[in-house]
Nucleic acid binder design. Sequence first.
DNA 1: TGAAGGCTTC
Length: 342
Amino acid sequence: MPNLMVETTLIHFYANNKDIWSARTVFDEMAERSSVTWNAMIKGYCSQRKKAKKCCREALMLFTDMLSDVSGVKPTDTTMVSVLSACSQLGELYSGACIHGLIEKTIFSPENDVFIGTGLVDMYAKCGCIDSAFYAFRLMREKNVLTWTAMATGLAVHGKGKEALELLDTMESSGVKPNPVTFTSLFAACCHAGLVEEGLHLFHNMRSRFGVTPQIQHYGCIVDLLGRAGHLNEAYDFIIEMPMKPDAISWRSLLSASNVHGDVAMAEKVGKILLRLEPTIRHVDMADTSEDYVALSNVYASAGRWQQVEMVRKKMKLNRVRNKPGGSSIRTISNHLDHDEL
DNA sequence: TGAAGGCTTC
């Protein structure tokens, strides 16, 4: 006879191992479910990398099922944190705001719960409401490094680089130490606001002042920072001089910057390096590698070099790389639980 | 009140 705890653990196990469909089968066949069971399933959906949007929609649908479940099971703080994350990933402001309302009505105040508070900051910021994110942030009594980082990320995507750097000072004086993720967000903030000097200064001081050793993602951010600002040769040299093997992300951002700044020679050089990288370094998923072929093909197309465009297309076919359709993730006005896939 | 939960560059 299966038992509730064993089956719930099994849902965790399948979801953590990327087999969300087996997790759902276990969930559907259970005779009895606790809130922990529902949370395991909802969280499982929210943390899938593949088909993330579809899974986040499933999470929100399951959440409405949970609300109307006749067994009397109630959402908990864990449930709310998970569904806020689903809204963030989907850019679903309407659903996020509804869930915020539900949190205020049913559970404790978000300002006293660092998990829920951080979830709200993240949700509002990712859904385009930086003011609401900042309001939720200010109300929180306890803020940890994840809360500060979520706020910095929000400021970064809204182009508020100076404010993000000021946030680092306030964070420091509050006694919270930044972590490697915080720096990734801060560099992104500098990048989107064109704060090249400030970003480089922070990069050179992050170890001595904050005790955080730069990792490959930080080097990637600096490449992006230099590239977007048009310092393409500097960005190239920066990649070459990295103390570790450069990853595809660094090369890809330089390729994109070369395209934006119309430097066909640099774009061609970088595009070729990118395609020479082993597929495992470029991406685990073959579908994603199409972006690199398309990018290089676009370089040639913008320069009117149609023979090379054709050559890249042929190489793509030869390597059986399929083109991937694009999509948008911001949905402010929508039926918040519709079933279509983006 | 856990079998658990929040932040990351192209």
